[in-house]
Amino acid sequence: MNQKTVSKALLNAALLVVVFIILFPVFYIVQTSLKSTADIYSGTFFFEAKTRNYEEIFTGSRSNFAELTRNSLVVSSAVAVICGVIGSLAAYSISRLNWSRWVTGGILVWLLFINMMPPIVFVTPYYLWARGAGIYDTPLAVIMAHMVLNMPLAVIMMMNFFAEVPKELEEAAVIDGCTLWQAFRMVIIPIVRPGLAAMAVLVFVFSWKEFLFALSLTTTSAGRTIPVGIANFVQEFNIRYGEMAAGSFVAMIPALILVLLAQRHIIKGLTVGAIKG
């Protein structure tokens, strides 16, 4: 028992070191966000903290981070939900429902193939589509592109998690009189909830960081997302470190809260589902 306490303490100590390593650059971002450019250039530890960078990103002529953050949250959440639904359905069908190997293999190879393409090759076609469909410079255009980009990740991850579920479970459900849809919804999904949560979080994150399409498919803060606003601080011949740091930090917080809440919600659903099952 005593030994167990010691090993627990050691484990936590080691993890706290990891936490420190992960957070160190984040602290540095916060510190930079409170510095003037002159203080950043001198590399000093001691400086007079200023909130100017934060004022600038919310009220400055260049950026409206409140709008960008709203767009980012809308886009990333929508993409996570769409990819979650379409990806799980397709992955379940592909991995469990007796498709011929040619069909499943073909879809898998196609997904891998488009995932391997450098995204730049899709930019011009998607731009022209978005203009043609009249959704240019709206979050919808960005959602469309991010959905396609993240679909391979969603499907492949979910296929893996479905493969781990014992087959007897859905057989039993079907014998009990469930349709396959009901078995999928009531039995299988609750079991793979941790996986589903991880997939949704990753899709959210990828959409949250994406820059190329968020830039190409938008022109004003009506459709733009945070990475575009941040990239505006990397300028032709200097980098506005302070504002960039402030922008990165501010944008991180709502995303973190949302991700944690969503993760908890999805995983909590797991226990509920398991009890039902």
Partner: peptide
Amino acid sequence: ILYRSVVIIPLLIPPVAIGTTWSLI
């Protein structure tokens, strides 16, 4: 819950910001 939240943080920073932050470091 602390560990889980902290670990997600690096993923939420746009790559340009990660690049510039580390170039400062």
